[in-house]
Write a protein that binds this DNA or RNA. Structure first.
Length: 268
DNA sequence: ATGGCCGGTGGAACCGGA
């Protein structure tokens, strides 16, 4: 079972590039982030015609996540538990019914910038950065809850976290950024410490592998990237992991997203 | 990580992104 994550930065803008990649990569399941569309406006027919079941959790203008799957999807839920008043569409779950059932959670973790700093140099945990860290705490609670089921779990998406220095071409410039602050990286490690395996790092112990290159300042041409799109696996899913790759070439295609797909192969 | 972009909104600038 091939499961991918892809921040498409707008479904309307990627209406050609996304089907092209699906045709070439043929994932069984793909979690999309930043669909930037309400559910009613998502062009589901295009993907249904390609054999995918389509489940969306969108909103107007920003954010929005979706799951496309060639295999049946069951028990679809929308929204990250822990704050019923959160209007931002950043979380969707579904159980993929293959040889082995896999619970797939697609997520678009808040960016968190800009960050304010106190006179002592510490980041102020408020505003957008406060929302990011609170969201990560909510996610941790949801992950812990799901782990009690002992099923194969995949948490994939745009985490907006650079885990380590080797995951950025120029780590020094990110020192005061919400994607790389110690508090963000600690919260990411706290997720891993629940017992999750970060699929790419588990299989590729090489630095300088990125999933995002900014549109500005020739970042792609200079390979000035960061690795922020991740797939985290429960022990039951990690036992089935046979491969994990970044589809870097997608960034060099026509009208690309600023992110590229990352995928795993599970023996499931 | 900014000189340099892009997408969405709404019909011109502006916000949000990372």
């Amino acid at each position: 079972m091939k499961i991918a994550t892809f921040n498409i930065n707008g479904i309307k803008a990627r209406i050609e590039a996304l089907p092209e990649w699906l045709e070439a990569a043929r994932p069984d399941v793909v979690c999309l982030q930043e669909i930037k569309s309400v559910d009613e406006a998502f062009p589901r027919e295009i993907f249904e015609a390609m054999g995918y079941n389509v489940e969306t959790h969108g909103q107007k203008s920003f954010n929005g996540v979706a799951i496309l799957s060639r295999l049946p999807l069951e028990d679809v839920t929308r929204g990250l538990p822990g704050d019923e008043d959160d209007p931002q569409a950043r979380w969707i779950e579904a159980t993929v019914v293959g040889k082995t059932a896999v619970r797939v959670c697609g997520l678009y973790l808040p960016n968190g910038n800009p960050v304010d700093f106190a006179p002592d140099g510490q980041p102020v945990i408020a505003g957008k950065y406060g929302y990011k860290l609170a969201w990560m705490a909510r996610m941790r609670a949801r992950v812990a809850d799901l782990l009690t089921s002992e099923e194969a779990l995949v948490f994939c998406g745009d985490y907006n976290v650079i885990p380590q220095a080797e995951d950025a071409a120029k780590p020094e410039v990110w020192a005061k950024d919400a994607l790389y602050l110690p508090q963000s990286r600690e919260a990411f490690r706290r997720l891993l410490n629940l017992g999750l395996t970060e699929a790419f790092r588990a299989r590729n112990p090489v630095p300088g592998q990125y999933t995002f290159w900014d549109y500005q300042a020739g970042a792609w041409e200079r390979n000035n990237g960061i690795r922020i799109d991740h797939l985290l696996l429960s022990p039951q899913a990690a036992d089935l992991l046979t491969d994990c790759q970044i589809d870097k070439a997608v960034r060099g295609g026509d009208k690309p997203s600023d992110h590229v797909p990352v995928w795993i192969e599970l023996d499931a």
